[in-house]
Amino acid sequence: MTTTLPTTAALALGDDALVLSHRLGEWAGHAPVLEEEVALANIALDLLGQARVLLSMAGDEDELAYLREERAFTNLQLVEQPNGDFAHTIARQLYFSTYQHLLYGQLADSDSEFAPLAGKAVKEVAYHRDHAEQWTLRLGDGTDVSHERMRRACEALWRFTGEMFQPVAGLDVDWSGMEAAWLESVGDVLRRATLALPEGPRTGAWSAGAGRQGLHTEPFGRMLAEMQHLHRSHPGASW
């Protein structure tokens, strides 16, 4: 595998999409209502399509998805976090889709090789973001129980949000401008949901922020084992 800058970026963005797609797929058969089951699967499918395009820019999509070890994945730690309860999934969606929408928006307007994909995907992600926003409002401004669960979920995932704005080599993006826009957008949704931006640290040596360097949290290895075992058990098999 080459290690040119565009490849680094294609892997980082592709791994984000692939890993979150797999996590969302885990809701199949478990979502609270049928409409939500379908919604989460649709979002997962959009992300899988993006992952296929991005990973194919870096090499063979199947080899990259199924035959790399944990340390070779450069996705954000946020997207590998377990689904938790529904509020955790929605908080993860709100944080990530807001980020992805801003990032693809910038890339779509650039002359980078990611512009064609970003221009297409940004329209899909607008719906993901809207979905997360509606649920955040409904849960945050809902019952005492839903409010408390949504608050807890936003707090729990907060420490994984700092690493989203670490520059990725090969992407010409205004990272600090993006971070400010992200904070404003997420803060606005949380306020309207009668919640507040969490106050804890968003980065830190002990906590989070090294997914892009291939360091992952404990649940990721188990997720990969499940995602990869079929392919690894039947090398070279095809439909």
Binding site: E35, E36, V38, A39, A41, N42, I43, L45, D46, K123, E124, Y127, D130, H131, Q134
Partner: peptide
């Protein structure tokens, strides 16, 4: 609107408040 996502990614699920029938809406992108 009942759900932004329906049987396929390109459709949303809606319901008519007059005839009460649910229907798919090819959503704008």
């Amino acid at each position: 609107l009942l759900s932004r996502f329906s049987s396929t990614a390109c459709k949303a699920l809606r319901r008519c408040l007059d005839c009460r029938e649910p229907f798919d809406h090819f959503k704008e992108v």
